[in-house]
Amino acid sequence: MLETSLLIAFSFVALALLLAFIRLLKGPDVPDRILALDTLYINAIALLVLLGIYFHSALYFEAALLIAVMGFVGTIGLSKYLLRGDIME
């Protein structure tokens, strides 16, 4: 039961990663790509949590926490760069 639902969940999250990746490649603008990266890291957290349950290991938690922190800092840094560093006028 748990095994089956985990496998279904894996395929859902993998599809979600794929869709976010297509958006990352397609763009069309810089904020779209930042948003795609943001979604990618949240999906990666979901995948790691599922792997932790699947392999019955608590080790994946640390990786998920680190990705959450670093992903947030990355998104904020990129958005701040757009707000301050880009000259469009």
Partner: peptide, 20 residues
């Protein structure tokens, strides 16, 4: 547990579908 996992995976997928 299975219900929670499936709901979670479903909403993650919906978020990415919206992005796409």
């Amino acid at each position: 547990l299975s219900a929670l996992i499936l709901i979670g995976a479903f909403f993650t997928l919906v978020g990415s579908i919206g992005l796409y």
